[in-house]
Amino acid sequence: MSSEQPDPELSETAQQINDLFDSTELSKAIETEEFKQFLDYIPIAIVVSKFFCGDQRICYANKAFETLLEQDTDCAGKGWSILAGFKDEKDSKVTLDLAMLRSGEEFLGTFRAEHPKALVVEAFSGLIQNEDGSENYRIAALIDITDRARAEREEYARRIRDKDILLRELQHRVKNNLQLIVALIRLEARNERRGEKVNLQTLAGRIESLHLLYQALSNDGAGDEVDLGHYLSQIAAAVMNTCAVEGIRLDQKTDYAPVSVNTALSVGLVVNELLTNSFKHAFGGRDRGVITVECVRHGEDRYRVVIADDGVGLPEGGVWPVPGKIGALIVQTLRESAKTDFDVQTAPGRGVRVTMNVDRKAAARGHP
């Protein structure tokens, strides 16, 4: 039989039941009217059976037990079959009466009955033996958890509804942002026609950024916002895994930064672009360097995102993003959709530092 433990919320009640079952004087006490009257005032359903002629027959049931089962007649003399309507939640073939007779465990499990009314109970059992070790009494306690179980079911149903709404929203966003993926691929194809080499690895990194975002949205509890700090950490890890060079260290500092999905998408694509460029171009001729990723709170509902490296910097007169390149399209999308400030600082031999100030509230008005 099940060796599971009762709900932690019931631990105090369970301990009281165990103390009752373990009483060395229980066998004698059960036979007294005084003890039976005491049990009648306990708000837990308790029923006791006595071994008689090779069978267990109920000799006492308190008022809470009769109320729980809506018994309008005395239970005395009946067998444990009166509990046959309760079925184990984990195995419907196991009924409470069989569990009572077979189990050597104090906690039998959680059982459900539909008639005469819907009930969910946690059941405990105890065996009282004679001095010679032979079976004398069996005692059972049933704790009504119907209301709690109903609340749990309602909460579960609510989560399913929320998940369904989120899934539909996610499908909507996937459909919309597939257009962005198509645009990126078309730009790469256009560049190829101009004689420029297509970098499939870079393109794959951009698509991976979208994949990580949708993965975050699919997790339990995800809503209209995502944690930008955690999302950028995932992007950094993915780029590091693809482009890592020995001697180049990634330094991260990220806070919890909830933003709209639209903002996360735009910022994530820019960060992926910058990190990829840093790994590939910032440390030419060097055997070591540091790339920094920061996403920190910078005022109420405002975050500062910094991507920087201590590499060679852009060449004299160089700019980023380069007009007409995919990076420029991505930055333009960031500025238009997320209303994000964007600043690039660089000098030959002193690396590149890109700062983005993200406004959570302003960004939340956008919707992909």
Rank of each mutant, 00 (worst) to 15 (best):
I128S: 13
R302N: 06
F21V: 07
R150K: 15
R365L: 14
I58V: 13
R138C: 12
R297N: 02
R138Y: 13
E316Y: 07
T67G: 02
R102H: 06
E106W: 08
F21M: 08
R304N: 13
Y60C: 10
I143F: 07
H172T: 02
R193I: 11
Q179C: 10
Q179N: 14
R193E: 12
N191E: 15
Y60V: 08
S92Y: 09
H211V: 11
R173T: 05
D220E: 15
K93N: 13
N357I: 14
A282R: 00
V312A: 09
A308R: 12
V271W: 00
G195A: 07
L275A: 01
A151H: 08
A237I: 07
I181R: 10
A189Q: 15
T146M: 05
L39R: 06
L178K: 09
T254W: 00
H230W: 10
T95F: 11
A151R: 13
A113Y: 03
L101W: 01
K253P: 03
L127E: 05
I58L: 14
G104L: 15
Q252I: 06
A149R: 15
L167V: 05
F65H: 05
Q332W: 03
G311L: 05
K36V: 07
C243L: 14
E34K: 12
K28F: 08
I181F: 02
P8C: 07
D220Y: 09
G205I: 05
G299L: 05
V290N: 13
L178G: 08
R288W: 10
E70S: 14
Y137C: 06
G366S: 11
A362F: 01
P8D: 12
D91S: 12
